[in-house]
Write a protein that binds this DNA or RNA. Sequence first.
RNA 1: CGGGGCGUGGCGCAGUUUGGCUAGCGCGCCUGCCUUGGGAGCAGGAGGCCGGAGGUUCAAAUCCUCUCGCCCCGACCA
Length: 570
Amino acid sequence: MRMSQLYAPTLREVPAEAEIKSHQYMLRAGLMRKSTAGIYAYLPLGQRVLQKVQQIVREEMNAEGGQELLLPILQPAELWKETGRWEDYGEEMFKVKDRHKRDFCLGPTHEEIITALIRSDVRSYKQLPLLLYQIQNKYRDEIRPRFGVIRGREFVMKDLYSFDQDEDSLERSYQRMYNAYERIFRRCGLDTVPVEADSGAIGGDTSHEFMVLADSGEAAIVHCPACGYAANVEKAPCPEVPIEEGERHSSEEVHTPSVGTIEEVCSFLSVEPQQCIKTILYMADGKPLAVLVRGDHTLNELKLQKELQCSELEMADSHTIAEITGAPVGFAGPLNLPIPIMADYAAAAVTDAVVGANKEDYHVRHVSIPKDCSLWKTADLRECQEGDPCPRCGAGLDTARGTEVGQVFKLGTKYSTPLQATFLDQNGKERPLLMGCYGIGVSRTMAAIIEQHCDEDGIIWPVSTAPYSVTIVPVNYKDEKQRAAADELYTRLEDSGIDVLLDDRLERPGVKFKDADLIGFPYRVTIGPKSLQENKVELTHRASKAVELVDIGEVVDLLLSKLASEQPLT
RNA sequence: CGGGGCGUGGCGCAGUUUGGCUAGCGCGCCUGCCUUGGGAGCAGGAGGCCGGAGGUUCAAAUCCUCUCGCCCCGACCA
């Protein structure tokens, strides 16, 4: 490809809307443009990268026996109603109506549609295991699209669905995918960490997320430096805390005028946050409930929801809080509350606590939660945090942030049962299929690669995902000698199968160098007047900035070997 | 949805508080000259219903009302 023909509009200035590097560079390097919030058009360079990532995904999926197919994006509501997810997915689903007023959605994922597809055609254990996948656009009406393509409303995703006859077989499918994911991300040049994860709206029991560690990441994870355990904070369990016999104080009400938050209470009463108890009121399936968490802890709604087994859970509004506690927000407490009280293990063990008094501008101190409160139940309800004991080995956990690029789930029969996807086993007995699903956010992966591979000048593509591996930059394309050398080298590189871009623009060299660095081609061949007299060209490695003078006749072979050695083997 | 902010040529912004002449600046774009090893220089030029709709006024980018969009923080998620 010739740069003069390529539609790659680069920007000198950083678009105001882009906060993080990957977003800025994707816009500046001309990889994509925004259409509307969370929706992007991919320009030729971006599309090439996307295709490279997809190709890696394809190869690894195929290597594990996956078969690619293409599924509808526009999906009928009926299927989603059968699994209950028409409601469960809620506001996040793009819903549309056709001219007959029938309900459809733009598929946020494809479990329903693929299960419905295979249920009529898969009848026997002899057809199993079956691994089917698709790479296509998915739609989620995110509350807040963010970070460019990292959290878009339209995005490219690969999903593979596995169908097995028993748990052992499902476990094998799961392992194959897990291993394939490690290979895929390695080939993309990504450093990922697999973490134990909650399965959220997709469902199922076992799940791992593949995280790219980044400060800009939206997910918080904990990991153990001692044994290697790693999990999403939503998932990591916190231990039960033994209740110790503390010194018995008699509780007393204290006047705490307009002292609402934990910080205010602590400084006002000179106590530590560990001694304060947050009383949070929730509505679970319409019924009120109070939850106690220690002041230095964060409630984990996922854990709470699981413990309650409710389908709808939301914090009570200020009106409800006032009605139940008799006090404005900020003064709720567990004493004499007319609703069930659940306590996190750690909160339930506090024997000298400060709690809200259910009375405006009053708190109560020296409260023993185990003795003075009538708790309905105690459970693990808080988010794991730095320093908490590792659930496997007990060592102190570290925290980090990450962007999720892939997730694998064992779904079991969550979809096959309601959708009646069954097969006949060896004994002629009808059984539901055991399913797994395995997603990779392809467009998000592209952004994650940039996050991990960039510097002040721009992107530094790994060879495996670079839009072009090599760019040829003649310092002055008007100069006949340089032009002839550039053209010839361009042809030879193309002939040898290298993705090469010739910057034949009549721009000044600085402009071309800047663009080359910004777009991030792994190698740049500079053809300049001085070295050309000795039949040499400069070969610059984008990542290391190392420059070597190479005999023009040897460039192709040298590049071929360099490119090959940089592609991670599988 | 709650809180904050922003909509002015392709990009980045000024002008809005305190209404007033042909609405500016930098970058990019076009033409010519010149230049060619890190986003050159000179000259000329194109391009803007000031997000939209109402209103106030002799006069609105500027004031008022409504509306649409975008960005950031939070609650949700791959």
